[in-house]
């Protein structure tokens, strides 16, 4: 009986330790992926801003959404999944802002019929 109990406890401890280290590994992978994504998103935002094409809700202080600061805050709280989701929005908006500015490079009164 005693032997069985010791074996069970030992097995449980082993499993917990294994799960913990797997979880820590998973978390550090997520963190690394987040950091890579954050750098990419920031670069895209700067690219859009350089052509006066940044959209409102990416990081403007008065925006109610502030996707980029919200992503950073989520990552700080350990919620990397949420952070990555928000960074995808940032990247999309930054890319669209840049493309829009490029498409509007030759905008002028000729577009309005005079």
């Amino acid at each position: 009986m005693k032997k069985r109990t010791i074996l069970t406890i030992g097995l449980a401890a082993l499993l917990t330790a294994g799960f913990g280290s797997a979880q820590a590994g998973h978390s550090s992978k997520l963190k690394a992926a987040y950091e890579k994504e954050l750098a990419h998103a920031k670069a895209l935002v700067e690219k859009a801003a350089s052509v006066e094409g940044e959209w409102r809700d990416i990081r403007w202080k008065k925006s109610k959404k502030k996707f980029l600061p919200s992503a950073i805050a989520a990552a700080k709280a350990g919620d990397y999944k949420k952070a990555m989701k928000l960074l995808k929005i940032v990247e999309f908006q930054a890319e669209m802002g840049y493309k829009q500015a490029m498409a509007q490079k030759n905008a002028g009164p000729q577009n309005y019929g005079f």
């Binding site: 959209w55 409102r56 509007q104 905008a107 002028g108 009164p109 577009n111």
Partner: peptide, 22 residues
């Protein structure tokens, strides 16, 4: 300044001229 006035911008893809000219 003229380009800024006529260029569409933002998520709504609007220029100053869209609202105040067209």
């Amino acid at each position: 300044g003229k380009h800024f006035f006529y260029a569409k911008r933002g998520q709504l893809n609007l220029s100053c001229a869209d609202c105040h000219v067209k």
